[in-house]
Design a protein around this nucleic acid. Structure first.
Length: 711
RNA sequence: GGGCGCUUAGCUCAGUUGGUAGAGCAAUCGCUUUACACGCGAAAGGUCGGGGGUUCGAGCCCCUCAGCGCCCACCA
């Protein structure tokens, strides 16, 4: 008997060795797979942040995707799983800025090219840590095809897309309200901001004959438009366009009456003044009526000269001073202290977002979104679970034009060129190369979703690569359900726009991984579970199957250590099952087959077959959580508890023929279970397989046990 | 304010097309049974959130009420 079996299963010793063996085999690369394989099966891995460690969510998606890939590979497909690493734009730049700060440096004033290079080197160096963690989790992805989101060919292809979209009249430059982080000196997308509820005083001020309500008196210096609802009877005597002199913060100003339906008659006094430069809604009102807009707060968050005596004051300090002054002038009517409103904050530094107006590049979303909707309607893209289709549609039916400009260095620079920027004679040209003397490239970079939206194409070397021809469109996009609007629609849009085909047929969405009590993991709560710690303690196989069993797509999962421990026991159980079977079948060759079966054996065989067929159906229909549980159950409570126990009697008292028959049955069942369990628990199954077949073949490329392969 | 989802054993969750409920952990009792104490055997535990309806039959379909969670949103 193999000496290994004398001890409990030891994942720590086994796993790295097995992974190395798989790597050496070259079978992660579909070009090397044995046999004739014509059907491709492709998954593009959502690239983890090159700079970060994997968290529990990564462990879950790597497990699910690896299950799909291993299963399809065993079914005989040309299975390709392309790994990647994400530069994670703003995220990484913030990390690097902190590093610079520690060194007493700052990105402001640094040569952008130098800064880019430093972050690049830093990221590439760290990338290996992330990759090693992916390997630890058993991912059978093709490392020879790994892509980084800032690889030179990726950068140039993304820039080409921008040029193409511009040529197709899908890009425009415009002044819009953006979310400006005064600390990071960049605009942020809505998803990079956090809405925080705050209790804040709500002030009522006299503004000529009106009373206006506001939470931000410090922005109100230039407010010369007073807005009310056209149907508000209280103010019926004031007509749209009327002007009147009012006493205001720094003296008299001329106010103009504006009637607009955006005003809520029920709220406050039903009258407000507007600050179009620093408020989205005010900007929209001002745009509708073609009103003047003036900047009050500079990019650093300080008041501009329009504030008179308050010029240069930081916006955070300005409020009490201005309220004091208005109070002194007798303009403060009352203060409501129990008011709560929602403030946007930078998700990285918690700084209050200052809405600002800035020239940015925009993508016209409507024509693109319509195509995406159409593809979903035609079922060219399907969602698991299905209800996410509704969310996708809602998102695509309500698109706003997409601001793709970011004022950070760490990203793909926008291929737009300026001559005499900001002056009357400003010229803008869109091209990959400098259009000539005197032109300077826009220092802004693309929103990270602009490039990651093209990832399925880029990862397959669109447009001319051989992989693109073979593997596009891909089969499954497996990602977190929170990306149903951030990422998935953009991929569909770019796939349809560039390749005329949706980039994947199936979108499989997993839920959040929460702590054992179902609470969201967060550093501040201290309940973060590091998947690599669990791997170390219980083995990767235990973590993987523990993450999968009972975890339905789309719903979040409570990750408890108890559960992982239970599946570690299962790995060991399987180990001992193998030990029993192999010990008791020495000298019997599985290839010799069965003597004639009796009724009882036939019953056992049919039961086994039915379980495996059932499991196969579940695999085909993406019910991994059921497949895993059924296999677990059959293995432990039927094969071990009943069949193995019964075999002891057969081996003690049975006829020679009965013994041989039983031995064959045990070997065939073990063989089939190892195969069926392999996608879920690749390490322990491969290890046993190596012992069982003395290293002659590899489980990873064996045929799935249903469809005539068993017996 | 909109949208989505959840409510099943003490805890965390499954339950695929409607046929009177399952898993893991925890808790109880008994086992040094030669594959495994990371184990074995046994027993226990649920009027499937409340109410109503459809049906021969509902955890599953429909209506309604209650509680919880998540996402989106410019009420100054």
């Amino acid at each position: 008997m193999n000496e290994k079996f004398l001890k409990p299963y030891n994942p720590a010793e086994t796993e790295p060795r097995i992974y190395e063996k798989w790597l050496e085999s070259g079978f992660f690369n579909p070009d090397n797979l044995p046999g004739k394989r014509t059907t491709p099966f492709t998954i593009i891995m959502p690239p983890p942040n090159a700079n970060g460690s994997l968290h529990a969510g990564h462990a879950l998606f790597i497990t699910i995707q690896d299950i799909m890939i291993r299963y399809r590979r065993m079914r005989g497909d040309k299975a390709l799983w392309v790994p990647g690493a994400d530069h994670a734009g703003f995220e990484t730049q913030v990390v690097y800025e902190k590093k610079l700060e520690k060194e007493g440096r700052s990105r402001f004033g640094m040569d952008p090219k130098q800064l880019y290079k430093e972050i690049y080197d830093f990221t590439i160096e760290n990338k290996k840590i992330m990759e090693d963690q992916v390997k630890t989790l058993g991912a059978s992805c093709d490392w020879s095809r790994e892509k980084f989101t800032l690889d030179p060919e990726v950068v140039s292809e993304v820039q080409k897309t921008f040029v193409k979209m511009h040529d197709d009249n899908l890009i425009y430059r415009g002044k819009r309200t953006i979310n400006w982080c005064p600390k990071h000196q960049t605009s942020l997308s809505d998803v990079e901001t956090e809405n925080v509820e705050e209790k804040t005083p709500f002030f009522y001020f006299k503004y000529g004959p009106f009373t206006i309500g506001t939470v931000r008196p410090e922005t109100k210096f230039g407010d010369k438009y007073v807005v009310m609802h056209p149907n508000d009877k209280r103010y019926a005597k004031y007509k749209h366009g009327d002007t009147l002199e009012v006493e205001w913060i720094n003296g008299k100003i001329t106010a103009t009456v504006i009637k607009d339906e955006a005003v809520d008659m029920e709220f406050g006094s039903g009258v407000m003044t507007i600050t179009p430069w620093h408020s989205q809604i005010d900007f929209e009102i001002a745009t509708r009526h073609n009103l003047d807009m003036e900047q009050i707060i500079d990019w650093r968050g300080k008041l501009l000269p329009i504030a008179g005596e308050f010029a240069g004051v930081n916006i955070k300090d300005a409020r009490p001073k201005i309220v004091e002054k208005l109070k002194a002038k007798g303009l403060l009517e009352k203060v409501d202290e129990n008011y709560t409103n929602v403030v946007k904050r930078c998700y990285k530094c918690n700084t209050s977002i200052e809405p600002q107006i800035k020239d940015q590049w925009f993508v016209k979303m409507k024509p693109l979104a319509e195509k995406a909707l159409e593809a979903v309607e035609k079922k060219e893209v399907v969602f698991i679970p299905n209800n996410y289709e509704k969310i996708f549609r809602y998102w695509m039916e309500n698109t706003l034009d997409w601001n793709i400009s970011r004022q950070i260095v760490w990203g793909i620079q926008i291929p737009a060129w300026f001559k005499n920027r900001g002056s009357e004679s400003e010229k803008i040209k869109i091209s990959l190369q400098s259009p000539g003397e005197g032109f300077e490239q826009d220092p802004d970079t693309f929103d990270t979703w602009f490039s990651s939206g093209q990832w399925p194409l880029l990862a397959l070397n669109y447009p001319s690569g051989a992989d693109f021809k073979t593997f596009y469109p891909t089969d499954v996009m497996e990602t977190g359900h929170d990306l149903i609007f951030k990422w998935v629609p953009r991929m569909v849009i770019f796939g349809l726009y560039l390749a005329k085909k949706a980039p994947f047929r199936t979108v499989y969405l997993h839920g959040l991984v929460n702590d054992a009590k179902g609470k969201k993991m967060s550093k501040s709560k201290g309940n973060v579970i590091n998947p690599l710690d669990l791997t170390e303690k219980y083995g990767t196989d235990a973590l993987r199957i523990g993450l999968v069993v009972g975890n339905t797509p789309g719903t979040s999962l409570a990750l408890s250590e108890d559960k992982i421990r239970a599946y570690k026991n299962f790995a060991n159980k399987l180990w001992n099952i193998a030990r029993f079977v192999l010990e008791n079948t020495e000298g019997v060759n599985i290839k010799d087959g069965f003597p004639e079966r009796n009724e009882h054996d036939e019953k056992l065989r049919l039961e086994r077959r039915s379980i495996l067929e059932d499991v196969t159906k579940d695999m085909e229909e993406y019910r991994f959580y059921l497949a895993a549980e059924k296999l677990y159950h059959y293995t432990w409570h039927t094969f071990a508890d009943k069949i193995l126990e019964e075999s002891k009697t057969v081996f003690a008292d049975g006829s020679d023929e009965a013994k041989v028959r039983r031995k064959q049955f045990l070997l065939h069942t073990l063989d089939a279970l190892l195969k069926a369990l392999h996608p879920f628990m690749p390490f322990v199954t491969e290890e046993i397989w190596q012992v069982m077949y003395k290293g002659e073949k590899m489980l990873m490329v064996e045929k799935w046990p249903v469809g005539g392969h068993i017996e």
